[in-house]
């Protein structure tokens, strides 16, 4: 089909009953046309690459993809809202009763079964670090700042559609499908955590 598209004009050599020798020449010539058009196609596709990849996060945005946070001043029972990738992240220093309450819950009864231990780092189970983004439709739940409603389970409460999270930020009631997401993080030291 491609050959036909390229050579549409009357061509004495292809006009039927050409001798065998001439036929070979024609095939070689058609090959050149096809090669030129295919090469141009390859070039066109290659040119699309920068046009598409320019929309991916730029270098300055990627540079902010990890953040170090000083947590020394967060007392047990307090929490802070930090910013990670332009979204809120909740860092909460759990009190022993809050941890006990989180451990008490039967994991099998949860919508998204996870233990407190799975959601924190070993030895630092009092540090609950989660994204402050409701897994339902992306609102910021309440409960991180002092004086905010913590919901029926003492964790976080999303006012948009009424999702309640417990003290391990697990979904307990309301429309959210999963627990608040735990981002990747490491403790650089006892007082500095690196998220991302």
């Amino acid at each position: 089909m491609a050959q036909e598209a390229i050579i549409e004009t009357p061509n004495p050599e292809t006009g039927g009953g050409a001798p065998d020798g001439a036929d070979d020449g024609v095939r070689r010539r058609d090959f050149i046309n096809i090669a030129a058009v295919s090469f141009a196609g390859i070039g066109g596709v290659a040119a699309l690459y920068p046009l598409i990849s320019q929309m991916a996060p730029s270098a300055d945005v990627l540079a902010e993809s990890s953040v170090e946070i000083d947590i020394a001043s967060i007392q047990p029972g307090q929490s802070i809202k930090a910013v990670f990738r332009k979204q809120p992240v909740f860092i909460r220093n759990l009190t022993p009763p809050e941890m006990a309450e989180a451990r008490k819950v039967s994991v099998d009864s949860l919508r998204d079964p996870e233990t407190l231990g799975q959601r924190t780092k070993p030895g630092k189970e009092n540090w609950l670090i989660t994204m402050g983004v409701c897994t339902h439709l992306g609102c910021v739940p309440l409960g991180a700042a002092a004086g905010e409603v913590k919901g029926e389970f003492g964790g976080y409460f999303c006012p948009c559609h009424g999702s309640h999270y417990d003290t391990a930020a697990r979904i307990r009631k309301g429309p959210a499908p999963t627990n608040l997401e735990v981002p990747e993080y490491v403790f650089n030291s006892d007082t500095v955590v690196k998220i991302g």
């Binding site: 990849s53 320019q54 730029s58 270098a59």
Partner: peptide, 13 residues
């Protein structure tokens, strides 16, 4: 300059 330095292929565009 952000286009020139940080945007992917920004300098080319």
């Amino acid at each position: 300059e952000h286009i020139m330095r940080d945007v992917n292929w920004g300098w080319l565009l």
